[in-house]
């Protein structure tokens, strides 16, 4: 078991955003958290990566509780996030952004070339844009860069926050195809998505989040056919 969240509570001031959520991500899986706006999906990811403090509960990574560990140390353990809204450094070039992903690695010099090639193999577009400023990339390219940069840290678990946000349908399909490819190469993935259709097709298991609670947990393929989920998240007439 790679990542286990036990009875997690998170507050924004007095408002409880996460009300006792438990999630398990096993090694090699793609697990997705789906839910509407304000369900607490992004808060979950931010808490796991350490940007939000935990009120109570545990975050176990390879069996070790990391809920009190500062964000920058969690990266060293192999927990890497492509944040919501992509979080590209707009003033750095594509290459500099990718290099930042390796900032904390002790062996960054020797690993750099190999990992850059891996990322360019997954996202050939980034190689074409290598000296372009991050802020001038299109949305899809920025998302590729965000994922590529997270991969530079050689994560064991990759956290993806709404990779489909604001992208054209064709680009969404491409991004999700690459997410599956990354998973096939051996990276465990926790994926937060509003685009339930795509997420459920790609994931092994899924959790449905509603106003800070997990209301359903099942195999992704089962949820895809679940009438309640279809009505709430996939929309009438979804294929």
């Amino acid at each position: 078991m790679r990542l286990e969240i036990k009875d997690l509570h998170v507050h924004y001031g007095k408002i409880e955003a996460i009300k006792g959520v438990s999630v398990v991500v096993n090694e090699g899986e793609i697990v997705t958290l789906i839910g509407a706006n304000g369900a607490g999906k992004t808060t979950m990811l931010k808490t796991i990566s350490g940007l939000r403090p935990v009120t109570s509960g545990q975050i176990l990574f390879d069996g070790k509780d990391i809920s009190k560990m500062p964000a920058h140390e969690r990266v060293n353990l192999g927990l890497s996030q492509a944040p919501e809204g992509r979080g590209i450094f707009p003033g750095m070039t594509v290459l500099e952004n990718l290099e930042m992903g390796k900032y904390h690695r002790k062996d960054r010099k020797s690993e750099m070339k190999e990992d850059l090639e891996k990322v360019y193999h997954l996202f050939p577009r980034l190689l074409e844009r290598i000296n372009q400023a991050g802020g001038t990339l299109s949305g899809g390219e920025q998302q590729m860069l965000a994922i590529g940069r997270a991969l530079m840290a050689r994560p064991k678990v990759l956290l993806l926050d709404e990779p489909s946000m604001g992208l054209a349908p064709l680009m969404i399909a491409n991004i999700f195809r690459i997410i599956t490819e990354i998973n096939n190469l051996g990276t465990t993935i926790l994926l937060v998505e509003q685009n339930a259709q795509q997420a459920l097709q790609r994931a092994h298991r899924a959790y449905v989040l509603e106003t800070g609670n997990v209301v359903k947990e099942a195999k992704a393929s089962d949820l895809l056919n679940d009438p309640a989920v279809r009505a709430a998240y996939l929309g009438v007439g979804a294929h």
């Binding site: 990566s49 350490g50 940007l51 500062p70 964000a71 920058h72 140390e73 990266v75 060293n76 890497s80 996030q81 944040p83 979080g87 450094f89 707009p90 003033g91 750095m92 500099e96 290099e99 930042m100 992903g101 900032y103 904390h104 690695r105 940069r149 997270a150 840290a153």
Partner: peptide, 18 residues
């Protein structure tokens, strides 16, 4: 590099392990 990253996005800088 770390200062650059912090200036541009503090949260993401932390995610880079800074």
């Amino acid at each position: 590099r770390a200062w650059d990253a912090i200036r541009q996005d503090d949260d993401v800088a932390q995610l880079m392990g800074i």
